[in-house]
Write a protein that binds this DNA or RNA. Structure first.
Lengths: 197, 197
DNA sequence: TTATGATTTGCATCCGTTGCAAAATTGCAT
DNA sequence: ATGCAATTTTGCAACGGATGCAAATCATAA
């Protein structure tokens, strides 16, 4: 099951993530070169690209997993549960999310800071989030086929995610602490959901 | 006032925009090289960068103007006008927007298609829109200082813009015609606003 | 140990982007 | 018109991210 090959791959992957994050926070994102990251992880520059598709991707290595989990929650909604309640549960889960890998590497904080402060990463994050929303809207529509059409689902999801996202950004922009930021996000999500139902 | 220098600049700028858009639609965005655009506009590659900051920017040449106009509407809100009414007016204006330059060059349709279909442009658009939202939230907060705080303003703006944006995207994704798309956006905006107030 | 398949590596290359200094162009005063 | 100053354009070199490809290396199972 877990041969040398696979263990090595996991190790290299982690080494790349750690090296990248360390270098990014130490000397800045733009200032860090892929060659440096690869060197720090002890692989060739070329090899970086067989682990990640781009320089940004090394920061968003877990995006897919989170989305799948959320879509799963929607797909397996509790029978009889209202849209609002489901969205509440989904919001809560999303806001609490931290990856295993993150915990193991203790990286979540630096990641948030980085993403917020580096334009290229911000852009990537927004784009990923956007794609996720579209899929979430579709999932919501399918889960409540008889209650809302696709466009209504899109309006709801867009409204909810948009509210949370911009509230987070405004709070960070204002210099709030991370706890305050998450609290604001929660408030925004719950108040938006209550208005949507 | 309008010397040769300035007229030439305007002409070059237009030539670049037109050339870029034509080439992008003809042979695709990634497949079109900056050198080709510059050649088609009869300037050197280097000169492209004294008109636009990046390859994407040539598509978003008018972003700033639109935002300023909207912020102006908010700043000069009609005395006594409710937040909802103001937002309604702003939404209407935003959805109807077409630039002079666009009309002159007849480009608005191709631009929408391009932006929707090219990932890099999508990402840029989202990022621009995001920045705009933050500024709009601040403007809204300032215009209604005694009624809503910054975070509430952010929640409202995020919710409204998010709803409109995702609804547009879902409609396009579904293959709706452009008229249907705008109609869906209008519906999403009005229904979201009515729930927010 | 060797055959096999997967992974890594080192090129070579393309493209977007930037800095810089030389050259060309425009505006202006005389 | 002529010469000077300011502005723009241009060519050139360089950097970094990204990709294709073939050679080299490595893990695994027989």
């Amino acid at each position: 099951m877990t041969g040398l090959r696979e263990r090595k791959k996991v190790r290299t992957r982690r080494a790349l993530i750690e090296a990248a994050l360390r270098l990014f926070t130490e000397k800045g994102y733009e200032e860090t070169t892929l060659a440096e990251i690869a060197a720090a992880a002890d692989v060739s520059t070329r090899t970086f690209f067989s682990y990640f598709g781009s320089k940004e991707d090394v920061i968003f290595h877990d995006g897919g997993i989170r989305l799948e989990a959320i879509l799963g929650m929607v797909g397996r909604r509790r029978p009889g549960e209202s849209i609002g309640d489901l969205l509440l549960r989904v919001s809560e889960a999303s806001l609490n999310w931290t990856t295993e890998e993150d915990l193991a590497l203790d990286l979540s904080l630096e990641r948030v800071d980085l993403i917020m402060s580096v334009p290229a990463l911000q852009a990537k994050a927004l784009h990923l989030l956007f794609d996720s929303q579209l899929r979430l809207a579709k999932a919501l529509h399918e889960a409540y086929q008889d209650e809302i059409d696709l466009l209504e689902a899109a309006t709801i999801v867009g409204s909810l995610v948009g509210a949370a996202k911009l509230t987070v950004m405004a709070a960070m922009d204002r210099g709030d602490s991370l706890e305050e930021v998450w609290k604001a996000a929660r408030t925004a999500a719950t108040s938006t959901i209550s208005r949507l139902t």
